[in-house]
């Protein structure tokens, strides 16, 4: 058993994969918790698709992908807010339109600019091919985002629970919203290498949602989500190594399997285990 766990660590690519998997597995659920409780889970998916045009531009210009991707993600999020505030268009429709348009723009730009982008790697992740610089970027983003959440926890709790109440008390809700969007975008960028833009939503939502079924406070949802996310990443990477599975999907499938387990067996809310209500 120990053999089974330690053998892959002889390879550098496996050590890298496990490190970034761990980082992403912790960071994504913490950020995803805020998306879930605001009923904005799909926004994570939208931002993930919106980073694509930014990525291809930064490849073309030869600047760090972080800059382009961040710009693209924020622009997409702001575009949705703008459309909603200026018209009767509802959030889901605005999101569907935005993410497909940005995605199309991204693909077009990659083709037109002949950016040497590894599209497969971007879309589906390539955790076994991460470089030390990727790990460094992910680690810095993770520390920054987690520190910001720790510092502004009480304001974020108020804002996400009762936005109007927070505004009524004079909290700068627009700044908080922008901050959340920025942190979500950074989280997605940090996770792209590991699971890819299409599957990153699964890491944002899956582990946090599993924790949601098990706990009753927001910070517990974050902590629980981080543990579950880290676990899913590690198991996924090992499965990918031993059974030659694509790594991103393997991580996501483990995370989803854990969700189904919690759905069935959560002590308080599990379908099979919850206390029977008296007729």
């Amino acid at each position: 058993m120990l053999h089974w766990l330690l053998d892959p660590l002889n390879y550098e690519f496996m050590r890298n994969a496990l490190t970034i998997g761990l980082l992403v597995g912790i960071l994504c659920p913490v950020m995803g918790t805020y998306l879930i409780v605001q009923r904005m889970a799909m926004l994570g998916d939208v931002i993930a698709h919106c980073v694509l045009p930014g990525l291809s531009i930064s490849f073309f210009l030869g600047i760090d992908i972080l800059i382009g991707a961040f710009g693209g993600g924020i622009l997409g999020a702001l575009f949705i807010t703008w459309v909603r505030s200026q018209s009767r268009v509802k959030a889901d429709a605005a999101m569907a339109l935005t993410f497909s348009s940005f995605f199309a723009l991204g693909i077009t730009l990659i083709s037109v600019l002949r950016s040497r982008v590894d599209l497969d790697g971007l879309l589906f992740g390539d955790i076994l091919g991460v470089s030390p610089i990727d790990i460094l970027r992910t680690a810095i983003i993770a520390v920054l985002v987690l520190a910001a959440i720790k510092i502004f926890y009480k304001e974020l709790l108020f804002y996400t629970f009762d936005r109007v109440g927070a505004q009524a008390m004079g909290l700068p809700v627009d700044v908080i919203y922008l901050g959340l969007m920025a942190a979500t975008t950074l989280t997605i960028i940090a996770s792209m290498q590991a699971v890819g833009v299409i599957l990153v939503i699964a890491m944002l939502v899956g582990p946090a949602l599993t924790a949601y079924l098990l706990v009753k406070e927001l910070h517990q949802m974050m902590l629980g989500g981080a543990v579950i996310g880290a676990l899913a990443s590690l198991i996924g990477v090992y499965l990918s190594y031993y059974f030659n599975l694509p790594s991103g999907p393997a991580i996501v499938l483990v995370s989803s399997a854990l969700f189904v387990l919690a759905l069935l067996l959560s002590p308080s809310q599990g379908i099979l285990t919850r206390p029977k209500t008296q007729p």
Partner: peptide, 18 residues
């Protein structure tokens, strides 16, 4: 949203945020 994961205590604690 009454499904929000938050305890009674922390809801009241929000009053002191500002």
């Amino acid at each position: 949203d009454w499904d929000y994961p938050i305890s009674v205590w922390n809801v009241v604690m929000m009053a002191r945020t500002r």
